[in-house]
């Protein structure tokens, strides 16, 4: 933990972390507020599972005993969008579903991230027809795309770790991202 903080937040302009740490006997960590904030966020995702389709089966496995998303700090599903910061879009989004997805996204508090789980959420998959939205990025901004039909749990975990890296590198100026670019109001 201390290593991560040093690497990401170490303040080189004021003499370097190592010197200060030695001076203070290891009892104090010097870092940037932004870095420790990001570090806290990346290990405590509160996910909102927007589970619609087949990918939900793999989502159950990912949360289940063998793969256990809890090890990465993202286990606790929140079934209210207002309490969640990671929107997991798991499965196909149809045109009937689309306004609901946008509404859920807009209800989430900042900072928030969106995880496109499975190829249907990423691009519509092999459902290229009248009923299906061709990728949720036509509706809401997406942070991580995990393809696969459905993706294996290993892929999901890999995607989550990539999202953690992304969160670690984000700046306060990145937020708020604001409402979704498409609106429910007609």
């Amino acid at each position: 933990m201390i290593d991560t903080l040093k690497r990401k937040g170490g303040c080189s302009s004021c003499g370097g972390v190592d010197d200060d740490s030695r001076l203070l006997g290891g009892s104090v960590i010097l870092t940037k507020l932004e870095a420790i904030n990001n570090w806290g966020r990346k290990y405590s995702f509160f996910q909102y599972p927007f589970v619609t389709a087949c990918c939900g089966m793999e989502f159950m496995s990912v949360c289940g005993p063998k793969y256990d998303l809890d090890r990465f700090g993202a286990a606790l599903p929140r079934f209210s969008p207002r309490q969640a910061d990671l929107l997991m879009v798991v499965g196909t989004i149809s045109h009937k579903q689309a306004p609901i997805l946008v509404k859920v996204y807009n209800q989430m508090a900042e900072p928030k991230w969106v995880f496109a789980f499975g190829v249907c959420a990423v691009s519509g998959g092999f459902y290229d027809n009248y009923a299906t939205v061709q990728g949720i990025d036509t509706l809401i901004p997406v942070d991580i795309y995990v393809p696969g039909c459905p993706p294996r749990p290993e892929m999901v975990i890999d995607g989550l770790i990539k999202l953690q890296q992304k969160v670690m590198e984000s700046r306060w100026s990145d937020y708020p991202k604001g409402a979704s670019p498409v609106s429910n109001d007609k």
């Binding site: 149809s94 027809n129 009248y130 009923a131």
Partner: peptide, 24 residues
């Protein structure tokens, strides 16, 4: 109907064997 994905329409536009993955 929130997961209506046009199964029958997709089947009618593919070959008999291409229906198999949709049945999954």
């Amino acid at each position: 109907g929130f997961l209506h994905r046009g199964f029958e329409k997709m089947c009618e536009n593919g070959t008999w064997e291409q229906v198999m993955p949709y049945t999954d």
